[in-house]
């Protein structure tokens, strides 16, 4: 079968793209599912006309090469794909559903098909052929928007996961040279890595000598988690800071002993308050001009000086 220079579909698009565009946009505005609060009319009209134009260019280019119109991997489709990506991404950010986004493409079918049907009423074979081809092209493009939609959603999810990872590991400064790290939720390798890095970084920034790791919010401790904790403690010690682990719940204490986790080198305290007291006590050993000599208001400072002895700080 010899192909004509320009197919019926392309010729139709060339001939009556203005009418199709007019009908199509008018219909989209009538659609009750169009959300004027999310998408302005001018924007929608702009998107529709650019899409139609790029569809026409792509079909014309592919036909010149006699390529397969329904193959989305052809480079002639790239421009259209880019356009759809932009549209799809902006709609997913605005809160449209995937079917609403794909519906943007599907709604073109109705106008295209009714026009084809009106013109080819006399030859049902050609009618069927043209409609099925146009159908295949539009289906392919609509599916592509869904794909992009999903991909951009996944990117959002991944970004949120990352943000949650950072949010969930705040390092707070409790006192001069005392840091606290309240850990909440299950610890896995990736999280512990982030925790470890942010704690160590903060130790350098603040010059803190004591870091309290509070695991009250950690529901379970297994050997892996315990090992991560011990690694953090060891790394902090290498940098010259002491770590205290606090908030060990009775069940966790039992589990740790049953798992034979060796915590003999680590100071452990039942509550954050106890750990804080120990931290103040340790820092009280470090001679610091002004702190102990000048009576400062505030109970906690008094506690610090209460525990302060001239003996040197000793690292076991």
């Amino acid at each position: 079968m010899a192909r004509p220079d320009s197919s019926y579909l392309l010729e139709l698009l060339n001939r009556s793209s203005d009418e199709i565009l007019r009908d199509w946009t008018a219909n989209q505005f009538r659609n009750p599912r169009l959300r004027p609060e999310l998408l302005r009319e001018s924007e929608l009209r702009d998107q529709s006309s650019t899409f139609l134009e790029s569809l026409r260019t792509a079909i014309s280019n592919i036909e010149q090469r006699q390529g397969d119109l329904t193959n989305i991997l052809l480079q002639e489709w790239n421009e259209t794909k880019q356009l759809l990506e932009t549209i799809s991404r902006s709609r997913s950010q605005k809160g449209f559903t995937p079917s609403e986004t794909a519906g943007f493409i599907f709604s073109l079918k109705q106008h295209l098909f009714s026009r084809i049907r009106a013109e080819l009423r006399e030859s049902p074979d050609q009618l069927y052929q043209e409609i099925s081809q146009a159908n295949a092209i539009l289906d392919m493009l609509a599916l592509f928007t869904t794909e992009v939609f999903q991909r951009s959603r996944e990117q959002i999810i991944a970004r949120q996961q990352e943000e949650m990872l950072e949010l969930s590991t705040p390092v707070v400064k409790l006192w001069d040279r005392i840091l606290a790290l309240p850990m909440i939720g299950t610890l896995d390798s990736a999280r512990t890595q982030v925790v470890m890095e942010s704690l160590l970084q903060k130790i350098v920034e603040t010059g803190s000598e004591v870091a309290i790791i509070d695991i009250t919010g950690v529901p379970t401790v297994d050997t892996l988690v315990a090992q991560h904790l011990l690694k953090t403690v060891a790394a902090a010690r290498l940098m010259g800071a002491d770590c205290i682990i606090s908030g060990i719940r009775p069940q966790i204490a039992q589990t740790m002993v049953h798992l034979a986790v060796d915590l003999s080198n680590v100071t452990t305290k039942a509550t954050l308050a106890d750990a804080f007291l120990i931290a103040l006590e340790r820092l009280g050993h470090v001679p610091e001009v002004g702190r102990r000599e000048e009576p400062t208001p505030g109970k906690k400072l008094e506690t610090a000086s209460l525990f302060g002895t001239p003996a040197a700080r000793k690292i076991a």
Partner: peptide, 29 residues
């Protein structure tokens, strides 16, 4: 003194927690 966080993590991951070595945050300390 003054071991960087990345270096500390690396040493611990290598299994070298240097139990006999005293450490401090800065030359001063």
């Amino acid at each position: 003194v003054g071991m960087r966080p990345a270096v500390a993590i690396t040493l611990v991951e290598l299994g070298l927690s240097l139990p006999g070595v005293q450490t401090a945050l800065s030359v001063d300390k």
